[in-house]
Simulated assay, not measured.
Amino acid sequence: MSRERLAAQQAELLRALLAGGAAPAGFDPGRVEVEVRALRAKRRRIVAYLRPELPQELGDRFVPLFTEYAATHPREEGVRMRQDAENFANWLTARGELKRPRWWQRLPGRAVRAR
Rank of each mutant, 00 (worst) to 15 (best):
T67N: 11
T67L: 11
T67V: 15
E68M: 07
E68P: 03
E68I: 07
E68R: 13
Y69N: 05
A70W: 05
A70K: 06
A70C: 02
A70Q: 07
A70P: 02
A71S: 15
T72N: 08
T72I: 00
H73S: 10
P74L: 11
R75N: 04
R75I: 06
R75Q: 02
E76T: 14
E76Q: 11
E76Y: 11
E76S: 12
E77T: 08
E77Y: 09
E77H: 07
G78M: 09
G78Q: 12
G78I: 06
G78Y: 02
G78C: 08
V79I: 05
V79P: 01
V79K: 03
V79W: 05
R80N: 12
M81G: 09
M81Y: 12
M81L: 10
R82M: 08
R82S: 09
R82Y: 07
R82K: 11
Q83G: 12
Q83E: 15
Q83V: 09
D84N: 12
D84P: 06
D84G: 10
E86P: 04
E86Q: 03
E86C: 04
N87K: 15
N87A: 14
N87D: 13
N87Q: 13
F88E: 04
F88C: 02
A89R: 03
N90C: 15
N90I: 10
W91G: 01
W91E: 06
W91Q: 01
W91I: 05
L92D: 00
L92R: 01
L92N: 00
T93D: 13
T93Q: 12
A94C: 14
A94G: 14
R95T: 00
R95K: 04
R95S: 00
G96W: 00
G96S: 06
E97P: 03
E97A: 05
L98V: 03
L98F: 06
K99D: 14
K99N: 08
K99A: 15
K99Y: 07
R100M: 10
R100A: 14
R100K: 09
R100E: 15
P101A: 08
P101L: 10
P101D: 12
P101R: 10
P101F: 09
P101W: 03
R102C: 11
R102N: 10
W103T: 12
W103M: 08
W103D: 12
W103R: 13
W103C: 10
W104R: 10
W104V: 05
Q105H: 05
Q105L: 00
Q105I: 00
Q105M: 07
Q105K: 04
Q105W: 05
Q105F: 02
Q105Y: 04
R106F: 01
R106I: 02
R106N: 04
